[in-house]
Design a protein around this nucleic acid. Sequence first.
DNA 1: CAATATATGTTATAATTATAACATCGCTAT
DNA 2: ATAGCGATGTTATAATTATAACATATATTG
Lengths: 258, 258
Amino acid sequence: MNSQAKRLNKILEHLRKNTASSVKRLSEELNVSHMTIRRDLELLEKQNIVETFHGGVMLRFAGLAGKNNDYSLLQAATSMAEEKIGIGEAAAKLLKSEDIIVIDSGSTTEYLARALPRALPLTVICYALNILMDVTKRENCDIIFAGGQYHTNTLMFESPEGIQLIKRTRASKAFVSASGISDRLGVTCSNRYEGSTKQAVMETSMQKVLLADSTKFDRVRSTCFADLKDFDILITDEGIPPEYREYCGKEGIELIVV
Amino acid sequence: MNSQAKRLNKILEHLRKNTASSVKRLSEELNVSHMTIRRDLELLEKQNIVETFHGGVMLRFAGLAGKNNDYSLLQAATSMAEEKIGIGEAAAKLLKSEDIIVIDSGSTTEYLARALPRALPLTVICYALNILMDVTKRENCDIIFAGGQYHTNTLMFESPEGIQLIKRTRASKAFVSASGISDRLGVTCSNRYEGSTKQAVMETSMQKVLLADSTKFDRVRSTCFADLKDFDILITDEGIPPEYREYCGKEGIELIVV
DNA sequence: CAATATATGTTATAATTATAACATCGCTAT
DNA sequence: ATAGCGATGTTATAATTATAACATATATTG
């Protein structure tokens, strides 16, 4: 790891502790010139990790900057950011007043959490820290959080009791993310605990919406939690392969491309 | 409520959503001059509610500024702040490596969450947003969160499943807060849901530590969840009435006064 | 090892924010 | 009503931060 990467990690560490900081403080803390800090922050800002303003910086993705994530992981989490913003906004447009929605864990779903229309009264069910942090900032919003053991790499909480809580709850719409989508091998994620929770969500929601950027197609991960055709709506970006467009048409899945 | 109080609430509301902001943004948002904002922020800073720096402001007690708390409530939450800091630090001194601890909801316990020694590997069980936010910033720390319905005024999550999760978990030490303490009428809190959760915690922890500033003595709230003598340790400040000192001696409760 | 590229530091200047003193507005009490 | 007072707005000046261009140091590559 080069010195810049080290510094970027130190900056993020500092921000995780303090949420916000100033260029001055950072340059003093890290013993580098203010220009170096500025250039570092510029990088971090381009990747949507921090937000700068005259006099300071603040963490944007408080959640995603989980304590064990180093800079490279953060990069991954912020890749395809533009596409994900579009997907989140498109998902938010589906919402109606009094909807009871599940927001799954993941970085794509976080953009939905941010795009939730402030005016609509909603009930939100979730189980990931980044989602929770966005939702608790909202008003007009009942929150149900399924707790459990905290997983720092996915920012997700999981437990039998959490799954139980989801199972006795009913949602009008579930917004689910995935790490891999294959017509033949189904919709997959990377961890067993994610799979169990997602399955519970699929069981208890009226409408199931899959949120995934186009890099997820024709990719598999270890844990399959649903068939693609189990979903009612698929929201993705222009990069979706033609054969998946066809598949959606054939299976009656509403396709929303942003 | 006069116009200044209204504005202070609006500022806090804005900060709750954005964590940090700038004088410029606030003055534009609220249509007042930057001087007015500055004077408002000066007030809020004096009360330890926000922290200002060149170019901006940020919330200090992110958790405590729950969205439904108005300005007057915030004041209450930050009262006895010095005593509470001491109590939190004293509680942190009790911790040993590999301890499994419960941190109850409340403002006093938040100071413990902040004072957790960074070096010690710990498992933390909690169910309140302000505690969670502090604990997730830490490393060397397994987190178990008991979820449920979110209560904005106490920042606490509660559900049968959450209680179930607590009940099947064992802790070496529980750090519990209270709204009222009476030798005759027991230890009380304000809400039924708080009581059920606290009771579950009392049942499943080896050592029970009560954290309360001295304003809580000889005060009762609606929901009783324990007798004072059920606790092994009581941490409070110098203001503790003499009769409670005696009571602790008689009942074998270790008293720590900060 | 030289040559090049990249990262960091320095400086001067521009832009923004902070402070302080004073002016004005609007409420309250008589 | 109006005098008085507190709250808010205005302005000029000081302090701080941002930007850009250039200089220097450090790392990389053939």
